[in-house]
Amino acid sequence: MAETASTNADMKILARQGVEEGFWLRAEKQSGGVGRLGRKWESPVGNLYCSTLVTCRSADPAPSSLSFVAALAVHEAISAHIPHDDILLKWPNDILVSGLKICGILLEGSGDAVIVGIGVNIAVAPQLEGRTVTSLFQEGADRNVTAALFLETLAPIFADMLAEWRQAGLAAILAKWQERAHVAGTRLSTSDADGKRIDGEYAGLFDDGALRLRKADGALIAIHAGDVHFG
């Protein structure tokens, strides 16, 4: 479609109408795109704005862990289109290229399904307050790469990752994620529910995907949600 408020919102409507897993919805532009924690997601023409639907099954891993599936799929799709390998996953579902944010992933529940919204900067790196971002074009991608072409790369990769998530289990997905993430010992900071800063070192992931953070006193704590920053 040419323009919509939000592909995630549209996909929720389609989910109620019975659209099947594997369907992708893409818009050229969004007027009301939303990122994690309710932040506005800038949506200029030229970038990818899309959503898909995953129907939750009783034997599936926790639905929230689909964020790792999505991040791995986007990481692989980006890797197919840029001429260098400085592509890093940052917990929980950021993809950084040359140290800069290039993608947004938002999961939302809808009945027995999860809507997976993905935005990737293809042609434009919109200015974001407090953040420095990049785009595929800035990172050397062929200028013939369009949002539609990128989705053609992404969709089958996502399907393969989703199948692995179901068949091999979450542990296999988390192992792949950690191979592509910041190294153990990387200094990270986050905040608790009261906004108090927490500093520590990245020490891997817990079995459920929670961030394992080692504090200065050696204590290991689990971070289940929130923003994480380097340093």
Rank of each mutant, 00 (worst) to 15 (best):
A2I: 05
T4N: 01
A5W: 01
N8T: 00
G18Y: 00
V19M: 02
V19A: 02
E20M: 04
E20G: 03
G22N: 06
F23I: 13
W24L: 09
W24R: 06
L25R: 07
R26N: 02
A27G: 06
A27F: 10
E28K: 12
K29P: 00
G32R: 12
G32C: 09
G38D: 06
R39S: 03
K40D: 10
E42M: 05
E42I: 13
S43L: 10
S43K: 08
P44V: 05
P44E: 04
V45Q: 11
L48Y: 06
C50V: 14
L53E: 09
L53K: 13
V54K: 12
C56L: 14
R57I: 06
R57T: 11
A59T: 14
A59D: 15
D60Y: 13
P61V: 13
A62L: 12
S64Q: 07
S67E: 03
F68M: 05
V69G: 04
A71S: 15
V74M: 12
H75V: 04
A77N: 08
A77E: 09
P83C: 05
D86W: 00
I87A: 08
P92S: 08
G99E: 07
G104H: 10
L106S: 12
L106Q: 12
L107R: 11
G109A: 14
S110W: 00
D112H: 10
I115E: 05
V116Y: 05
G117C: 08
I118F: 08
I118G: 09
G119D: 06
A125V: 10
Q127A: 14
Q127F: 13
Q127D: 14
G130L: 11
G130E: 11
R131N: 12
T132F: 12
V133L: 15
S135G: 10
R143T: 15
T146F: 07
L149E: 04
F150V: 04
L151Q: 15
L151Y: 09
E152I: 03
A155N: 07
A155R: 13
P156A: 03
P156F: 04
F158L: 14
D160T: 13
L162M: 04
A163R: 15
W165T: 09
G169F: 02
L170F: 00
A171M: 10
A172N: 06
L174T: 01
A175I: 01
A175Q: 11
A181D: 13
G185N: 06
T186Y: 07
R187D: 13
T190M: 03
T190G: 04
A193E: 09
D194Y: 06
K196R: 09
R197W: 00
G200P: 01
G200H: 00
A203N: 14
G204E: 12
G209Q: 07
G209T: 07
A210L: 05
A210T: 10
L211R: 01
K215S: 09
G218W: 02
G218E: 00
L220G: 04
I221V: 15
A222I: 08
F230M: 12
G231V: 07
